[in-house]
């Protein structure tokens, strides 16, 4: 008797924990599929440590057949940097939402970027604090309605949406890899993540990938509306593409760094 067809999950996915804990239509599953494919392609399952944040990203704590640590809100990058400094042979993936990356954990992101920490950071941008019920996030679009901006985000009062990859690209030293992908283009997103993992493995510098993602639950959208908001409105504000590659010459603003210091 032929073996019945089985789902084409990335090999590193843990079938025992599927169906996963994310809502119907949530982009996390797609981002984690892209990550899984990249880990499979590089053959690094045995030495990859996956860290997930608070917010919906924590629901991935048993997602993979990877050693996994679910940390505190915004603190995933420091935990994984701690691991990487202690065990440089490991490959560490820091996985979080836009709130963890750009609000409560922003100082860690900025500091890891300027240190060029050997960590691959994946930020899922869905424009809302989803697990807590759809409040305004650093990435909420101008005019977008959320639970704490019921009349639409007023940028005069609340600022403009955070451009995370642009921020990291502006401050990271040479060797950094920075990109923004989208769950609407899984192949491209997977390639970005794979390059980000390679960047770490080759010891070149920080890798930062933002993934534009969906939250039908808090957006209160059907499938058609979900795709429209993601592909039209979000992509217009957050351009998809590579912002820094390790081969790239650093921007003129990034000065050469000879040793300095007052004479003793």
């Amino acid at each position: 008797m032929a073996i019945a067809a089985q789902p084409q999950m990335p090999r590193v996915w843990r079938a025992e924990s599927k169906p996963h804990k994310f809502c119907p239509g949530c982009g996390h599953g797609i981002v984690l599929k892209a990550l899984g494919e990249a880990v499979d392609a590089l053959g690094i399952q045995e030495r990859t440590i996956f860290g997930c944040d608070i917010g919906c990203s924590l629901l991935s704590w048993d997602f993979f057949n990877l050693d996994t640590i679910q940390t505190h809100h915004g603190r995933t990058t420091p935990v994984l940097v701690g691991i990487k400094r202690a065990r440089p042979e490991l490959v560490v993936v820091s996985y979080m939402g836009d709130g963890g990356a750009y609000a409560i954990g922003a100082q860690h992101l900025v500091s890891s970027a300027s240190r060029n920490d050997l960590v691959t950071i994946i930020v899922v941008n869905n424009t809302v604090y989803a697990m807590t019920g759809g409040q305004m996030a650093p990435t909420t679009l101008p005019g977008q309605k959320t639970e704490t901006t019921p009349y639409g985000r007023d940028v005069e009062l609340t600022g403009r949406p955070m451009l995370g990859p642009e921020l990291v690209a502006a401050i990271a030293p040479p060797g950094a890899y920075v990109a923004r992908g989208s769950v609407a283009n899984v192949v491209q997103l997977k390639n970005y993540i794979q390059k980000g993992l390679e960047n770490q493995i080759q010891g070149r510098g920080i890798a930062f990938i933002e993934a534009l993602s969906s939250c039908p639950t808090n957006w209160r959208t059907n499938a058609a509306e979900t795709w429209r908001f993601l592909e039209k409105e979000m992509s217009a504000y957050f351009p998809v593409g590579e912002l820094r590659t390790p081969e790239e010459k650093p921007a003129a603003r990034l000065r050469e760094v000879p040793a300095h210091g007052p004479k003793p």
């Binding site: 067809a5 089985q6 084409q8 599927k18 994310f22 949530c26 982009g27 797609i30 599929k33 899984v186």
Partner: peptide, 9 residues
């Protein structure tokens, strides 16, 4: 490709 749950092959 877009199925978040790997429910389609």
């Amino acid at each position: 490709l877009v199925c978040p749950d790997a429910a389609i092959w």
